[in-house]
């Protein structure tokens, strides 16, 4: 939205998972927009600091799981002096409805924003019925 509002910092939300993690590091929930177009569902999530090859997108048992890992090696040799945010990997899961075509899921990454395009199954697309 191109309005004149000034931005405020959103505190990162820590991931509270059902299963306990085996690694001590914290995970964060990426802030996400979801919107629906005529033929697809778009999931837009913010994963700053994550490279293309460090993202795992899986569909298992009607659950879409996204895991994005940051690279801490970039911080090697840097001594923190002052911090306003913490860093960590990102993870989030979504339940898919039967309207989503499991075979038509596409992903794109740009400027730290991951966009998933979940195609709807053909039957779920709106169809106009002509009266004979």
């Amino acid at each position: 939205m191109t309005d004149a509002r000034s931005l405020e910092v959103q505190e990162k939300k820590e991931l509270v998972s059902k299963g306990e993690k085996t690694v001590p590091a914290r995970y964060y929930v990426p802030t996400t927009d979801i919107y629906e177009t005529a033929d697809a569902l778009k999931v837009v999530m913010e994963v700053p600091g994550v490279a293309r090859d460090a993202i795992d997108i899986k569909v298992e048992d009607d659950t879409l799981r996204v895991e994005a890992r940051i690279d801490t090696a970039k911080y090697d040799g840097m001594e923190p002096l002052y911090t306003e945010y913490n860093v960590g990997h990102f993870a989030r899961s979504f339940s898919l409805s039967h309207h989503i075509d499991r075979q038509r899921i596409a992903a794109a990454l740009e400027d730290g924003v991951l966009t998933l395009t979940l195609g709807k199954v053909q039957q779920a697309e709106p169809r106009r019925i002509e009266i004979q």
């Binding site: 939205m1 191109t2 309005d3 004149a4 509002r5 000034s6 931005l7 405020e8 959103q10 802030t31 996400t32 927009d33 979801i34 919107y35 629906e36 569902l41 837009v44 913010e46």
Partner: peptide
Amino acid sequence: IHRRERRSGH
């Protein structure tokens, strides 16, 4: 829009 968490602005 189903979910809107991201913010925009200057």
